[in-house]
Design a protein around this nucleic acid. Structure first.
Lengths: 345, 345
DNA sequence: TTGTAAGCGTTATCAA
DNA sequence: TTGATAACGCTTACAA
């Protein structure tokens, strides 16, 4: 016999009362004598009674569970977000059910499906790199399903989303490089179908323009996977194959930035003297590598917290989705380290 | 109206058949005419029917959901394990419900509680650093609840667990340092109440002894939190405050190892010439820091896979827990990098 | 080949 | 102050 198997009926039988009485006593409903309440609770304790959340879910058509769909768990940013999600959810009495898509659209859809079957109360979603059309999401939105998108947000009119200010983060990073006297700044860009990549590139471009620098198309190289190998290759290409050599690199993500650093070392270029580098995400390793890597820090934990509290508010009708017209945008912070500082101030 | 709200009854009404017929038709039960099956499926499709997993759970007393309780999500090792768990679970049709304890015993217990309420089919657990007595687990085990412990395993006779060979990993790491000619090897140890810490320390000790070296108690410093600050302080202490200076450090975890590296740099000690360093866990940054950090790699993904498939086998009665008497032990791999190699071979 | 009815554990409604 | 009953959505004897 398993623990917690005792039901309300068992308690009722033991005390020769009806199950409704037991139910009410356990919930401290008014109109139940203190005497009965005491007895019921006593027996409940004795039998190790544990309410069956499944039965409750069925009854109330609510599962007190939210579904999280993310590309990857093993990723500093996403795991930080999860941490924030978990924190808020558990403090408000919700369970978190988790799936990773591994950047596959098919898995994204099937996750959505099983979660719907499981009567999930709402979704937190950061979609996969393969996802280019959002029908599977907008269908749910049309039916009134509570969804909050985070970080990677879809182009759907009435979608609620929480994101970071990628544009401003990139703008600040690039401006910082310019202020340090770098003038030929290249960009290792992210996958083109993600808004965050576009925004970061836009921030990079506008910073250059606003500081009177030219944007060289050959300085922008797409690194869709965001690995250090990719960053390494892109940087070697920038150094060797292009007439106008860059003197700084702003990378769409930290891994690519590390690849860039390794390429510079391999080519004998000194960082930050001959090549300034700034990454994006502020992974844990940024501060411990040599030279330490300047990076734009994303408030992952906060994103998780904010997205979750909004979702739960929507679920609990404390928040009307219609009142929110624009995405919630959280600020980044530029952490300046050795890799991009060559001016003594 | 929400999507997937259509129930078996709705289909039945539409076709003027009974709900049992619909249920059977959807499941391709024998003894239902092909004609009926066709019609039922057609209407199901039309109404966007989606089986209600909650109702199913209640009926079958099975939720097809497993609960994962870990100390922290934002941790390379654990997130890798989660990835393995998620992979196996989803491929076998199970959901994964996740909570992190943040190393708090109270949260561990309350997670256990809510999951039990949610009729979880089984548990995957790596307990918190605060957990020193295992009554809350053994009670469940006695009641026959399927639990697989991983990495941090409790001292309970009939517990099923999956772990890595911490002893051997530490032994190999220490032996490697000895072979490189280091003779005064210190150890940054983990929290004393975790078996993994004890095993790693034991591996360290025995490697020394088997190679004819003495074990100096003042060379073993506990770093319970495993942060780089802690490793930094411990190493400064080792370098400055002790008569017999160490010439190598084997750290219980990579973060502490990084702290040791930083301390060496701060003190002007060259790595690996004057100080060899080996870490444990093989975090992503090991290969990209300077010098790259030798480390014992733990097969996190495999641990997740193995633990999950064992748990599901237990749940599905394909595996009798009584047949397993010893913990499953997975091998580590020593990844030798620059931080510990001073002999040209 | 199909229908009826009971039951999984809980709670809301109505009645006593 | 308490009890009987129905219902949440589904499956499954048992009957027809």
């Amino acid at each position: 016999m398993k623990i917690g198997q005792a039901t309300i009926k068992d308690i009722a039988k033991e005390l020769n009362v009806s199950s409704s009485t037991v139910s009410r006593a356990l919930k401290d409903y008014p109109g139940i004598s203190d005497e009965t309440k005491r007895k019921v609770k006593e027996v409940a304790d004795k039998l190790n009674y544990r309410p069956n959340a499944i039965a409750l879910s069925l009854r109330k058509s609510r599962s007190f569970t939210i579904g999280v769909i993310i590309p990857e768990v093993v990723h500093f940013f996403f795991s930080t977000v999860i941490s924030g999600i978990e924190e808020v959810a558990s403090s408000r009495g919700y369970n978190v059910i988790l799936t990773q898509t591994n950047e596959s659209l098919a898995r994204e859809k099937s996750s959505l499906d099983t979660m719907l079957s499981n009567q999930i109360d709402g979704f937190l979603i950061s979609f996969s790199k393969e996802t280019t059309d959002f029908d599977h999401f907008s269908k749910l939105l049309d039916y009134g399903y509570p969804i909050v998108f985070f970080d990677r947000i879809p182009d759907i009119p009435n979608a609620i989303s929480v994101m970071i200010d990628d544009y401003q983060g990139a703008y600040n990073a690039t401006s910082h490089l310019i202020e340090q006297g770098y003038t030929r700044i290249a960009h290792l860009a992210g996958p083109k179908n993600l808004n965050i990549s576009k925004e970061r590139e836009r921030g990079y471009r506008e910073a250059l323009i606003n500081h009177g620098l030219k944007v060289y198309p050959e300085f922008i190289i797409e690194c869709p996977f965001g690995t250090n190998e990719e960053g390494f290759k892109a940087t070697e290409y920038l150094i060797k194959k292009i007439n106008l050599k860059p003197d700084a690199i702003f990378a769409n993500n930290d891994m690519a930035a590390v690849g860039a650093m390794l390429a510079c070392k391999a080519e004998g270029l000194k960082i930050p003297e001959e090549m300034g580098i700034v990454g994006f995400s502020n992974w844990q390793f940024c501060s411990i590598i040599e030279p330490s890597l300047s990076s734009v820090s994303q408030p992952g934990f906060k994103i998780g917290e904010k997205a979750t509290s909004m979702l739960l508010d929507m679920i609990e009708k404390k928040l009307d989705p219609d009142t929110i017209t624009a995405p919630i945008v959280l600020e980044t912070e530029l952490l300046i380290r050795k890799s991009s500082v060559r001016l003594s101030s």
